[in-house]
Design a protein around this nucleic acid. Sequence first.
RNA 1: GGUGGGGUACCGAAGCGGCCAACCGGGGCAGACUGUAAAUCUGCUGGCGUAUGCCUACGGAGGUUCGAAUCCUCCCCCCACCA
Length: 429
Amino acid sequence: MSDLIEEFRWRGLLQDLTDGAAEHLAAGQRTCYVGFDPTASSLHVGSLLPIMALVHAQRHGHHPIALVGGGTGLIGDPSGKTEERRLLSLENAAANAEAIRAQLQRFLDFGSRNNPARMRDNLDWLGEIRMVDFLRDTGKHFRVNEMLRKESVRRRLQSGDTGISYTEFSYLLLQAYDFLELHRREECTVQLGGSDQWGNITAGIDLIRRVTGVSAHGVVLPLLTTSTGVKLGKTETGTIWLDPTRTSPYRFYQYWINATDDDALRYLRLFTLLEQDEVVRVGEAARAEPAARHAQRAVAEDMTWRVHGEDGLTRARLATRALFGGSLEGLTADEIADIFTDVPWSEVPLGELAGDGTSVVDLLVGARLAGSKSAARRAIEGGGIYVNGRCVEGVDARATAREAIDGRFLVLRKGKKNYALVRLIRGGP
RNA sequence: GGUGGGGUACCGAAGCGGCCAACCGGGGCAGACUGUAAAUCUGCUGGCGUAUGCCUACGGAGGUUCGAAUCCUCCCCCCACCA
């Protein structure tokens, strides 16, 4: 068995592990699982770390299990939350679980002969369990005294007014029970997760030991922030999702391209499957030729391909080259339409551009590049607004039909990298 | 329950009758420099067909005043100490 923990270590994926976990994983083919919460209908960049942990586990010959929390999602994990969660409806949780399942498929190899990935949903067992059985067989192993000492519970008890409901208080038991159930059904002995899951994971380990006498193990990953302290996968404009309808492949690609140099080098280790010497090589290339953004590019290409496939990557590249490489000049309207499928757009009747045209301020607000007319005027005054790549001078500027590319589009840009497309549609004002 | 201190824009925090759409810091946006980095520097940071104009806004509701974020009354919420 190759050394999974050693790989976690050099990649910066290791926050903490239980005693003996490294030896356990090194000594044979094990079954490892990670739980994914279906609170949203898509995973986001923040979930990529545990996914990659599972990917590495599989590459090292272990059996990976992705557990979708169709059951636990109905309860809500209090870890890291300061307030009680709103309960998901049964249908929502099921739909979300299904969507997440599809996203996980892209990362893991389900067809492997030796160690195919498996997908499980804990609703399969949690949904059928009988209350009385659960309390007798599982509840008996938990001391409330200890549960009260758990960080996630204590914080909620101290926060006073909201407190914690019995429902969320029980969450720990359910997740512990998941581990036990996977141990019984799939011989799973290792759980991976974010470091906020430590308490839940150790609870599962304890339960397995009490019920079966077997020592199971846990490995937790660090909670990452960018070098500027922002939670990974969050930007000013919102979360970066894996779902292409929520975050377009182009935006997804751009998220990685825009990483700072330091972050990009870390991401190389955390998110790509490049070997150690390759990481070093890319790092050196990046240092020697910073403008080429070798590290950012490598991460962006790799992740976009993995999440959005060859097609998504091609589109993201095409758009990026057009928007940041050369100019828009020389592109046909069809090419523009294609490049900008991922960029926000608005529609304006062609007739409004007739004569002396329509005001750029209004176009900006319409395309949501500016929150208000005042903001649009300020942006123009600051020199940060471009129509078809030409800087707009003066707040009174107007756009006319003559400027429209092929009579079909206007390309608005705010700053260096915020684009919006105005589609001109038939009809008068 | 008592006493004291507070609630101001995205956050922190000044202002304490007109000069207040509200100092300052952070954040955000834009510009310069660069490499679609970082750091640094500059400008902007309520809305409105740009207006010595109007509207909205200093916890909420009333009131005093020519005029209130600023004073008064009641209410709500937070914090500290006491019970």
